[in-house]
Design a protein around this nucleic acid. Structure first.
Lengths: 219, 219
DNA sequence: GCAACGAGTCGCTAT
DNA sequence: ATAGCGATTCGTTGC
């Protein structure tokens, strides 16, 4: 049974648990189902043991987890030495990199102006110009369920850009690149005259792997 | 060493790992640090074992995790029977419940009209009216770092409401209730004339616990 | 050091 | 079954 107190208060009822203590002070309590832990404590927490009661406390964060143990099924210690890192292929950043180098996939004739172009309302993934020198704001999402939020975000970019000295007097266009949209977003995009190009990780997979291979061999 | 392929491609380099197999088919691979798993598979995955190579596959989702094992430090099986659930006090929903019953804490004179009031641009946490029958849109956030996004969201509610038959001709006000804001959001709220009331979980803690106690004794 | 933002986000609730 | 949205979100990158 666990009692957590901190950013919320919570009680995890009695049950069979797997408790992991990490080297950095993190604590993880898993239940019988699901990928996520039921309870946890962040790195930097202090572990203490008393008979039948373990506690983990993070003083600075004012968080505390009490674990009441009735029976220990098994216990093991392991000196974790090796901790190879996780290499990911296909993050939004990587997809953005690839598309910035192959802008014709988004729309023929686009010319790259800037990545993560700063505006008062946030950074634009890819800023480009078309054949007519009209600025084109490109937003890339890797997830299939793009919400209406993204449409509003693009709207804000489009509104903010002409207020910047470099883009005064322009009428920017917007293009959303994503593998899929949530219900109703298609209509919202049309209404707001935001273009939509359906590209997802699966479409770029092979090329992304090649790029990744090159990068690894280069380093 | 793990190879994941699915929504992304990833390689987890060799290291000391804790692997958990859950009853529902979920798989979790933890490294030496941090609360989060390095790799995982969702519930419903199928587990297979070969010498030195384990695989977990979720056919429908087209996801696969291969785990290459050099040495097994320890292995244990446990029939997880009991799995008490997690009871949380202080979720946004609970805070919203409490504040809806004590609207004076937000602003004296407010009268509750609806919870999760539907609008074309999303549901309003708490919809109220003030002494002058002006609609008041209340948004509640439990996290300390409320972003500018929330201000825009409230703006959209305020714009959408007068277009609904019941609220035609009204000029709604907005109030944000949260324990804290991200940098610059305070200014944005002022600019948009959105009210801000600083209330967080810590302020409501005692009352939330009481409500929770009552509910438990009632059931 | 904090702030901004993506995530293989996950998981829950209502439709 | 799906959509919408909160989360003790976490973790990484940039400033």
């Amino acid at each position: 049974m666990c009692i957590y107190s901190g950013r919320i208060d919570a009680e995890l009822e009695l049950g069979d648990r797997v408790i992991i203590l990490k080297d950095d002070g993190a604590v993880v309590v898993h239940g019988k189902n699901s990928t996520n832990a039921k309870n946890w404590m962040p790195a930097g927490s202090e572990w203490q043991e008393q008979p039948g009661r373990y506690t983990s406390e993070h003083v600075k964060r004012k968080e505390k987890l009490e674990i009441y143990v009735q029976q220990v099924f098994a216990e093991m210690h392991c000196n974790a030495e090796l901790d190879g890192k996780l290499i990911k292929i296909g993050s939004e950043r990587e997809m953005s990199d690839l598309l910035a180098a192959q802008m014709d996939r988004i729309e023929p004739g686009l010319m790259l102006v800037a990545r993560e172009a700063a505006t008062p309302v946030g950074p634009i993934d890819i800023l480009a110009t078309d054949n007519e020198a009209t600025p084109v704001i490109v937003e890339i999402k890797r997830g299939a369920g793009v919400s209406s939020e993204t449409a509003y975000q693009l709207d804000r970019y489009r509104e903010a850009l002409p207020k910047m000295p470099q883009w005064e007097g322009t009428k920017p266009r917007c293009i959303l690149v994503a593998p899929g949209l949530k219900k109703g977003v298609r209509e919202l995009l049309k209404e707001k005259e935001i273009g939509y190009v359906r590209i997802g990780y699966q479409d770029l997979k092979e090329e992304l792997r090649q790029v990744s291979r090159k990068r690894r061999s280069a380093s």
